[in-house]
Structure formats: structure tokens, C-alpha cells
Nucleic acid binder design. Structure first.
Lengths: 220, 220
DNA sequence: AATATTTTAGACCGAACGGTCTATTTTGTA
DNA sequence: TACAAAATAGACCGTTCGGTCTAAAATATT
């Protein structure tokens, strides 16, 4: 069976295009593009059904590729899981980092950041930190370590905002950036669990309001 | 192969013993006792490795029973998973409820309750709400519903304490029991994730301190 | 357009999966 | 102690698992 039109083949010798992602596509070999394609199709499924719960046939179906097409690009299902987590993590991190960058004041930065968590479309199959973290903690040391890094980055986003607020005399020095970041992050992860289990955003709203209140308590 | 000494067989006609669990053992048939035995051995494994990640051979190994011994008492692996969750949930609920009962004042009740969450031995393979909730949300409607119930019970424990505090004039009526319970519960679940991923209790300590502070803010 | 290289399809593999069934053992009753 | 009923062992079942391999197809190079 032919598999043309599955992955558009961009000739290496084409003139450099206007858009970064097209340039990247051009630099990438066919195999690299297929690899990326497999990750993009697999990641949401693994995020949803879990690593153990996702089979190779799930991945074959999502990509419309046969076994050979998968294993020509990855050496194991495990590798697909690892790369899927890194992909999901960076996708979400980009959104969160952008949101922070859009704000000028500490308050704007925080509120923008919280808005990303508020909108479940930004993590429609759940938070990869939560999903992979819960599954990997007892079974997969590599992913466990990646989740650790992801949590620290996520918390640093919060503590950086608090520190920025202190520096800009927007907040009193009494706020403890580390503690604030831990309160915010843990509550949000708990609220993500509740959002998935209850299929509504009720508890998330209350949690985000509480984080805002904690912040406002230190506004000068 | 013989399997005596695996499960002590208590004769139905023995005089009623002093201890409730022995009485219960006597009332139970052999099959009921074996069923309970299988759950007790399987639940920690399923809690740890997940439902999809636990195989029947894992359960056979843990119980030292053959396939027939398992399937004579359960009709599917799914049923073992369901009953394992209910078992883990009730085990933990008992500890938490007891802790609350030991306290006389609202403050004592809350601090006792938090102490249970603080001690990771009380949930050595992780929180079943978190573990089962994350896996079941997209794949298992029955367990998803049970997790919903478990979350509501866990949160009610917190809001009941706040309401009790108001009633006893220990707290101002300004505390919102529902919101307080959501802040506390979501933060603790997030902290449990961090505890498992970082293999330490650092963030849990900070979270519990924050919950206490929120409570103390309303103490009259 | 011809050719060398890369990539993919899909048949194939052994192992492990969840689950069934019957002969045998253990248990409860008398 | 004998016997009926209940419970278990383990061989067996078809299916699916993750993974390999080769011939064919697509791609890159000339």
C-alpha cells in the first residue's frame, strides 16, 4: 500500500522559507520528520491512556503506519513514551512561558499564567506532569527524573514572578517566593485531578482565586 | 501442590472470640476469606504499578495462588482492580476518620488529620485517589465515579472540621468551609505527587504549614 | 533518467496476556 | 470417619503484546 500524502516531503534544496517551522521542516530529514510526526500523534494517546495502557497497535492506528515504519524510527515503545513526555512538556511550557512574557507587572504575569491553567484546552488530555508522574514514580526512573525537572521548572515560573514583584517594589519582601510557588503548584495539580475526575472547572476556579488572594496579600 | 497454611481456616462453629476481626473471619466462608486475602495482597501492587501495569501473574505471585484460585473468586482482573480501590480507600478513610475523632477541638481535629497525610507510611504506595484517579479518568467510568465519591468524602472531612469550628465559636464565620476544604485537599494531593516524585517530604511540610496558617487566620 | 540510499509495509516470532475448564484437593457436615 | 459440597491447581485456549526482518517502495544523489 502506498503511503504518500501522509507526510509532506519538503525538498532539502528549496529556498529558505519565511516561517521557522518550514525552515525546520526543510532541515529535517524524512526520517526526522516521520519521527516528529509519530511523537505528535502518539503523545496525546499516551498522555490519556498511560504508558502501560497504550499499545503499539494504538500508535500504529494513530499514525497509520505499520510496525516497520514505527520501529525504523524508534527502537522501542519505551523510547516513544519518553519522547512523548518531553514533547508534551515542552508544548505546555511554551504556552506557560509565553503567558508570563506577555505580562509587564508581576501581577499581570501571574494572572496570565493562571489563565493558562484555567483553560483546560491547554492540556486537554490532562497535565503530563501529573499523568506521567503518577505512573512513572514506581516504574520508570528516567521519566521520574524528567518529571522532577518539569515540576521544578513549573515552580520556578511562580517563584520568579514573586521575586520579580519584590524587585520591582510591587510586593513586600515578606512573600516567600519558594513557598508561594509550592502552594500554587501543588494546588493547581490537585485541581487538575479534580477537573478530570469531575469533568468541570469548579474547584480549579476556587484554587486560582486562592492563589490570587495569597499574592494580593503582599501587594504594596 | 498443597496450599495449606496459606489461609488459616477458622471453623464456623467455634465459640465467638473476643476480637471483632476474628468474629468476622468466622462468619466469612472460606471463599470470602480467600477473596479478601487476594484483595489485600493485590491492592498495594495495583496501587503501585497501576491497573494496566499489573498483570495476573503479578497477582498470582503475590497471593501464591494459581489461576483457578483467582478466577474462582473473581470474574475478571477488572473486578480485582475495582475491589482493590474500594479496599485501599476504606483503609485510608479509617485512619483519617480516626485521627479526626481523636481531636476535641476543631484545631486538634485538623492537626491530627494533617498528621496522617504528613506520615507517608499511611499511604506507602501513594494515594489511591491520585493513582486510580489519574489512570481511570479516561478509561474506567466506574472507578472514576468511585474516585469522585472518595474526593468528596475527603473534602467533607475538612469542611466538617471548619463548620464544627464555627459552631463551637472557635472560628469566625468568615471561614468558608467549602473553599477551605478545596484548598487543603488539592494542595495535599499535589504534595503527594511531589513526595513520590522527589522521594522526600519537603513540599508536603510546606503545604501542611500553609493549611494550618489558613486555619489559624480564622481562629477567634 | 539511472542508481544508490533510506525508509516503510507487513509477514513473522516467541512470550505474555486475560480467561476457561476439569480433575483433584480441601472443606464443612454428619 | 465418611461423604457431599466448595474451592483450587494447572494445563490449555485464542488473542495481543512488543519486537525483528526482508522485500518493496520512496527518496536523495548523480
Amino acid at each position: 500500500m502506498c503511503y504518500e500524502n501522509k507526510i509532506k516531503n519538503t525538498c532539502k534544496n528549496k529556498p529558505i522559507g519565511l516561517y521557522l517551522h518550514l525552515q525546520i521542516e526543510m532541515i529535517m530529514s524524512k526520517a526526522e520528520r516521520t519521527k516528529q510526526f509519530i511523537i505528535e500523534k502518539s503523545a496525546p494517546i499516551i498522555n490519556k491512556k498511560g504508558m502501560a495502557g497504550t499499545s503499539l497497535s494504538d500508535i500504529m492506528e494513530a499514525t497509520k503506519l505499520a510496525k516497520g515504519g514505527i520501529y525504523g524510527n524508534f527502537e522501542s515503545k519505551e523510547e516513544i513514551c519518553k519522547e512523548s513526555f518531553l514533547y508534551l512538556r515542552s508544548q505546555l511550557a511554551d504556552k506557560l512561558n509565553n503567558a508570563v512574557l506577555q505580562g509587564k507587572t508581576a501581577k499581570e504575569k501571574l494572572f496570565n499564567l493562571l489563565a493558562v491553567y484555567d483553560n483546560q484546552n491547554n492540556m486537554s488530555d490532562g497535565c503530563p506532569i501529573l499523568n506521567f508522574g503518577v505512573e512513572a514514580d514506581d516504574t520508570n526512573p528516567f521519566i521520574k527524573e524528567q518529571v522532577r525537572n518539569a515540576i521544578l521548572s513549573a515552580q520556578k515560573r511562580f517563584s520568579d514572578i514573586a521575586a520579580f514583584g519584590i524587585e520591582k517594589k510591587e510586593l513586600t519582601a515578606e512573600i516567600n517566593p519558594e513557598k508561594f510557588s509550592i502552594h500554587a503548584f501543588t494546588m493547581i495539580e490537585g485541581a487538575i485531578l479534580c477537573r478530570k475526575v469531575f469533568d468541570n472547572n469548579h474547584q480549579m476556579k476556587i484554587v486560582l482565586e486562592n492563589i490570587k488572594n495569597e499574592f494580593e496579600r503582599y501587594v504594596i
